[in-house]
């Protein structure tokens, strides 16, 4: 594993809220919330994997945010601040309902999933023999719904780092702060999420007959 700076970044008054707004120019909570609403809702849907729970979670997040807004020193960091509140609120929501986030484990995957390489699998299986852009053509098979279906099957602990960094553009340090884990843990989970994603995309493509595998060719 590459060496990284090991940082515990749990203090939201630190990396996420560093500077202090000028009180005269400070935006209202409602304005900030409206600006972030679609992104926050999308995040809540991904956390819960359930539209009804996402509705409850986004409202609970906004209620908590409204109460704590005075503690946010820099409104330009509101997105990370709201996502952190949503992450915490989701834990309480699931605890209250006595459930874990639904996951679909990949049976064929070892604990780390490190064996599988989508890049190599595509090259070996060669699903588009006449293509000059074999790997890109594979990715072009996936519509937004397909990507969401694959994403939904990734273990939540590995999915959230992917969503925060790749989808929402947080740095790994910011994502670590939002999820309240050390940076090294975040990077490890990001790697495992990536491997589950790669495996999931390939399995999805095979299962839905988007590609034909060598085994099928030989039948």
């Amino acid at each position: 594993m590459a060496s990284v700076v090991e940082t515990r970044a749990t203090d939201l008054t630190g990396p996420i809220a560093r500077t202090v707004d000028d009180p005269a120019e400070r935006r209202s909570f409602a304005d900030v919330a409206r600006e972030q609403l679609d992104r926050l809702y999308g995040f809540c849907v991904r956390i819960t994997n359930d539209p009804n729970d996402a509705d409850d979670l986004v409202q609970e997040t906004l209620l908590r945010g409204m109460r704590a807004y005075d503690d946010l020193r820099d409104a330009s960091r509101a997105k990370g601040w709201l996502f952190a509140i949503a992450t915490n609120a989701s834990r309480d929501l699931f605890r209250a309902r006595g459930r874990q986030v639904a996951t679909v484990p990949f049976d064929t995957m070892d604990a780390d999933g490190d064996d599988f390489s989508l890049f190599q699998t595509i090259a070996i299986e060669d699903p588009f023999p006449y293509s000059d852009e074999l790997h890109l053509d594979f990715l072009r098979l996936f519509r937004d719904d397909d990507v969401r279906a694959v994403f939904g099957s990734i273990t939540p602990a590995f999915r959230l780092p992917l969503i925060l960094t790749v989808v929402h553009g947080f740095s790994c340090k910011e994502a670590a702060a939002i999820l309240e884990v050390p940076l090294g843990t975040l990077l490890s989970r990001l790697h495992r999420g990536r491997k589950q994603l790669e495996r999931g995309l390939w399995d999805y493509a095979v299962k839905n007959s988007l590609v034909t595998t060598t085994d099928e060719d030989e039948r």
Binding site: L37, L62, M66
Partner: peptide, 29 residues
């Protein structure tokens, strides 16, 4: 691959009914 994920996962909009409830909440704020 990261671009495909970002686009596919990023496009989520708040349903109108929920948006309306949230607007009521934010108006009170």
């Amino acid at each position: 691959l990261r671009e495909v994920v970002a686009v596919g996962e990023g496009a989520t909009q708040v349903p109108p009914e929920l948006r309306s409830r949230i607007e009521t909440l934010l108006a009170k704020a």
